[in-house]
């Protein structure tokens, strides 16, 4: 068995003294693990940092085996965000969420969203919004996609201001007015209306929406908490903007 692909590094575990087990989100082969011989060497360590893009060749005798990766560095982004707590926690949250996907199940959209997030994670104005969009994409891939394209009550496609926690659909400002206390706020960028980088409050609102549905459909049934990195991202954004999401 052999294939070549590109991927974003999710993390490594030590294997013996000089090797590691690499976990990577590949474009065509999903979340995949494999042994990297010499992965703890000075040459390979900088390459195998989470968020870096790599070119991979995976080889195994049969498909069920863990297999061995031959890795070549692509976009080595890690050093660009090591100085930023927000960027590191954004990436940590995205990596933890990616691990919710089943292994070896292709999700090209998640790979692309993760690579885009890793590209811009050090940009404080763009990175947090990309995490919310990444979570939206992940919910869709897990089968719990939200319909934010039109109002669930009236069918209109503009002035969408809320998300129904019951249906996961958008609600327009007019239709949602009587129930606005029970609805989740929908920041414009989450439904695709991205004119400028979203404000920290918009991102907090977006993370409140995605966090609500992740808790209901993903964390709750699995009995697990939200990733620490996500909580720290919210704490940092709250410091920047003030009020907090649930």
């Amino acid at each position: 068995m052999e294939w070549a692909d590109e991927g974003v590094v999710l993390g490594v575990r030590r294997l013996g003294e000089s090797s590691v087990i690499l976990e990577v989100m590949t474009r065509a082969h999903g979340r995949h693990a494999g042994v990297v011989r010499g992965g703890r060497s000075g040459r390979m360590r900088p390459v195998l940092q989470p968020g870096n893009s790599v070119s991979l060749v995976w080889r195994a005798r049969i498909e069920e085996q863990l297999g061995v990766f031959a890795v070549e560095g692509g976009q080595l982004r890690a050093a660009r965000y090591m100085g930023s707590a927000l960027a590191l926690n954004l990436l940590g949250a995205a990596v933890a969420l990616t691990r919710l996907l089943p292994e070896r199940d292709p999700h090209a959209d998640v790979h692309d969203a993760l690579a885009l997030l890793a590209d811009h994670v050090a940009d404080d104005a763009v990175g947090p919004g990309l995490l919310a969009l990444f979570e939206l994409s992940l919910l869709a891939e897990l089968g719990f996609g939200l319909d934010l394209s039109r109002c669930v009550a009236t069918g209109v496609t503009d002035h969408l201001a809320y998300v129904s926690p019951k249906s996961g659909c958008a609600v327009s400002a007019a239709a949602g007015e009587p129930w606005k206390d029970r609805l989740l706020p929908l920041p414009p960028f989450l439904s695709g209306a991205l004119a400028a980088p979203p404000s920290p409050q918009d991102v907090l609102d977006a993370l409140r929406v995605t966090g609500f549905f992740l808790a209901r459909h993903v964390y709750g049934p699995r009995g697990m908490p939200a990733p620490d990195g996500r909580e720290r991202v919210i704490a940092i954004l709250q410091r920047l903007s003030g009020p907090s999401p649930q």
Binding site: R45, Q49, A79, M82, A85, L88, N89, L91, G92, G229
Partner: peptide, 15 residues
Amino acid sequence: NATVDGQTTAHFITD
């Protein structure tokens, strides 16, 4: 260490 895990821990300690 100058790794993602090491620096995440460094920022956590700073906070």
